[in-house]
Computed example of a mutant assay.
Amino acid sequence: MTEEQFPQALSIAGSDSGGGAGMQADLKTIQSRHVFAATVLVAITAQNTLGVQQSLALPTAMIDAQFASLAADLQIRACKTGMLADVATVKAVVNNLKRYDFGPLTVDPVMIAKGGAPLLTEDAIAVVRDELLPLATLVTPNLPEAEKLSGLTITDQAAMRTAAKRLQALGAQNVIVKGGHLTHADSANDYVLLADGSDFWLPARRVDTVRTHGTGDTLSACITAELAKGRSLPSAIRTGKAYVEKAITDGILVGHGHGPLNHWAYPEDRDED
Rank of each mutant, 00 (worst) to 15 (best):
A68E: 15
D73R: 06
D86Q: 15
N174L: 03
D186K: 06
N262E: 10
A204S: 15
G116F: 06
A126T: 12
Y243E: 12
W201K: 02
A38K: 06
A172V: 08
Y191S: 03
N174R: 02
L133P: 11
L202Q: 10
T153F: 05
E272H: 05
G151L: 01
T239S: 09
L182W: 05
P267N: 04
A236V: 08
K91T: 15
Q157C: 01
M23I: 07
A78W: 09
L233K: 09
T29D: 12
L56P: 05
V94Y: 14
T212S: 08
K28D: 07
P134M: 00
L138P: 11
L182H: 11
F36K: 02
L50S: 09
E131C: 00
N48P: 00
L135A: 02
T2L: 01
A136T: 05
A88S: 15
L193I: 06
T39S: 09
A195F: 06
G257T: 04
A117Y: 12
K229Q: 13
T249P: 09
G230Y: 12
P203N: 11
M160R: 03
H263Q: 14
E145K: 00
L167P: 15
Q5D: 13
E4G: 11
V90P: 14
E131M: 02
F6G: 11
A158W: 05
Q24G: 03
A163K: 04
R238H: 12
T153R: 03
S198E: 13
G115Y: 11
G20S: 10
T39I: 01
R211S: 13
R33P: 03
A242S: 14
L194Y: 09
L261T: 07
V175L: 08
N262A: 07
A126H: 15
T212K: 09
L84V: 14
L27I: 13
L135E: 12
D199R: 01
A242R: 07
Q168W: 04
M83D: 14
V40A: 02
D16Y: 06
P203C: 00
H258D: 07
A21F: 11
D271A: 00
D108W: 03
L50M: 08
A247Y: 14
L182P: 10
V87N: 14
E131L: 00
A169W: 12
E226A: 04
I248M: 06
T224H: 10
I125P: 08
H184E: 15
A38H: 13
H213D: 13
Y266K: 10
Q157S: 05
T224F: 11
D199T: 05
G51M: 00
A78P: 13
R33T: 02
K178E: 11
A13T: 10
E4D: 10
V40L: 03
D73F: 10
Q24I: 00
